[in-house]
């Protein structure tokens, strides 16, 4: 995973609440191999009209936020399904950070795995960021993970993120390698557990393996 330390780029002031994963990427696109890139599916049905043309006035289509690497939304961002593709659409569009008052649980853990920072701010600070003249004008926003601050013009806003997630993002740690380093603990657990919960192994029905 690519480590995240800080970013400085325009932010897209999306400003919507309860952006669910079905909005982030409609199910019909999820057959696509990742190698093809998922960026084009980001908020597909929200940002386009019936004919598929980009809706003017929708922040994502606004040229001022063309180079955005952070998105600012309202509460419960990424609620809904476990589809990690909801993170791929953001990452493949160049986003490294989403700022919101709260996130869907599965979305946040998927985000961390892909080096996308889910930065939690207060409702008031989300409002302040969304109304900030520099952000609205497409000016650079700075997100510093070590300091846990967001800076836009004169506005400085703190954010929270779970400490273990912060470490993982800062270091770009890979879970599988980390887990493999605990191989002996896992083996010991499995041996002890077989005695404690013999019923926990599935029984193959007669005549099958």
């Amino acid at each position: 995973m690519t480590p995240f330390t800080s970013l400085e780029a325009p932010a897209c002031p999306l400003g919507l609440a309860n952006v669910d994963t079905d909005q982030l990427i409609p199910a019909r696109f999820m057959q696509t191999p990742r190698a093809e890139g998922y960026g084009k599916f980001l908020l597909h049905d929200l940002r386009r009209d019936e004919a598929g043309a980009p809706k003017t006035g929708f922040p994502l289509n606004d040229p001022r936020y063309a180079g955005a690497r952070a998105m600012i939304a309202r509460k419960n961002f990424g609620c809904g399904s476990s589809r990690e593709a909801a993170v791929y659409v953001l990452v493949d569009s160049g986003y490294r950070c989403v700022i919101a008052p709260s996130f869907g649980d599965i979305f946040s853990s998927n985000a961390i795995k892909n080096g996308l920072l889910p930065a939690i701010v207060s409702e008031a600070d989300a409002d302040a960021l969304l109304a900030n003249a520099s952000i609205v004008a497409g000016g650079a926003l700075r997100v510093d993970l070590a300091e846990q601050t967001i800076v836009a013009g004169n506005l400085v806003v703190p954010f929270t993120v779970r400490t273990d997630w912060k470490q993982r993002l800062l270091n770009g740690w890979d879970d599988v390698d980390l887990t493999k380093s605990f191989a002996r603990d896992i083996a010991a657990f499995v041996a002890a557990d077989a005695k404690l919960r013999p019923w926990a192994r599935p029984v193959a029905p007669d005549g099958e393996n």
Partner: peptide
């Protein structure tokens, strides 16, 4: 509980998962 694709990969490879 439901998990994402990277977690699916992790469980496939280790039969374990990190959780808080």
């Amino acid at each position: 509980f439901g998990i994402g694709a990277s977690e699916v990969a992790h469980v496939l490879m280790t039969q374990t998962i990190w959780q808080s």
